[in-house]
Each structure stands twice: as structure tokens, then as C-alpha cells.
Amino acid sequence: MRTIKTLLTAAESEAQRAGDDLPGPEHLLLAAFDLPDGTARLAFERAGADPAGFRAAVNDAHRQAIHDLGVQVTGSDRALPEAAPATGPYRLTAPGQEVFQAAVRLAKESPRSPLRGAHVVAAIGGQERGTVTRALRTLGVDRAALATAAGEVLTER
């Protein structure tokens, strides 16, 4: 339960920092990178991607989506100041809920059932569209390879 609270609180902070009302899959993945088990970072690296580059890829995906709508974006790429975590029940976007529920389901199905960061990574691999998918494409990360890498990490640890 502590991991879930840590994950969701950090995802809320990531969303607030990005100026988003609710956390989505990209915020869950960013939060999973910082979980103490280290499995999200390891799975991402095993899939051939640098976790440190994911935030920039998300920003690029947002900029490209806005550009595609015909809106010019100017100004700094700096993140907003870190906001205090929200209190009360956790809320996610619909795709964020999908990823979170899939990660919990995967954790329950695995031999070592506590939720770990690689469960979030595996669930992200199942996303077919959205910001997280565009960001992964920017990084050259294949979603199936990402899910496979997460599964490998989960069986090893």
C-alpha cells in the first residue's frame, strides 16, 4: 500500500509541475522511475531508453500536439515550480486509470505481488495512443519491447 501511495502522490506532483489537472500515464511513468525498487528505470534502460530523456520526450510530444493544432508555443521549457502534493482521494485521467489498474492487475498476477515500478512500465507498454506513446516513439522505444523488458526485470527481481 505504501508503494501505491508513493506512486500516486508523485504522479500528482508530476502532473501539477507540468500544469496538468490530473495525472496521466506519462506522470505515472515519471513517478515510477523514482520508486525505491528501481525496477522501472532498469526496465526502461533494458528496452534501450534513457529514463532521463523521457521528460523531454513528453515535453516534445506536447509541443508537437499543440503545433499540429496550429498553435505557436514560445517561452521557456522550464518546468513549473514543484507543487505540494494534493491531499484526499487520488484521481487520474482515464488513460492514467487504465495504466494504474493494469499495473495493479499485473502485480496481483506475479509471484511477488507487491506493486513495483516495472509493473507500471509493463502497463505503459500496453498503451496504444496518447502522450506517453508519442514520447516513447520520440525516444525510439518499441512498446512491445518495453513490456517485455519490464516482464524480464520482474521475473529476475
Rank of each mutant, 00 (worst) to 15 (best):
R2Q: 14
T3G: 03
I4R: 14
I4K: 06
I4S: 08
I4P: 00
L8Q: 09
A10H: 03
E12R: 10
S13K: 04
A15R: 00
R17F: 01
R17G: 01
A18N: 05
G24C: 00
P25R: 01
L29C: 05
F33W: 07
F33K: 03
D34E: 14
L35Y: 08
L35T: 04
T39M: 04
A40R: 00
R41W: 02
F44Q: 02
R46C: 00
G48F: 10
A49M: 05
R55S: 09
A56I: 04
A56Y: 00
A57N: 08
D60L: 09
A61H: 11
H62Y: 11
R63Y: 02
I66S: 06
I66Y: 03
D68N: 12
V71I: 15
V73N: 04
V73Q: 14
V73G: 03
V73T: 10
R78H: 13
A79H: 07
A79K: 06
A79T: 02
E82F: 00
A84M: 06
P85C: 02
P85M: 06
A86M: 01
T87D: 10
P89S: 12
R91T: 11
L92R: 02
Q97T: 14
Q97D: 09
E98N: 09
V99C: 11
Q101R: 12
A103N: 05
A103W: 03
V104K: 12
R105G: 06
R105V: 00
K108I: 09
K108R: 11
E109S: 09
S110T: 06
P111G: 14
R112Q: 15
R112L: 08
R112M: 01
S113D: 06
P114C: 01
R116D: 01
V120T: 08
V121Q: 11
A122W: 04
I124A: 08
G125Q: 05
G126H: 14
Q127D: 01
Q127T: 12
E128T: 15
T131K: 14
R134A: 13
L136T: 06
T138D: 14
T138V: 11
L139N: 12
G140W: 11
G140D: 07
G140T: 12
D142H: 04
R143H: 15
A145M: 10
A150F: 10
G151M: 09
L154D: 14
L154Y: 08
R157M: 07
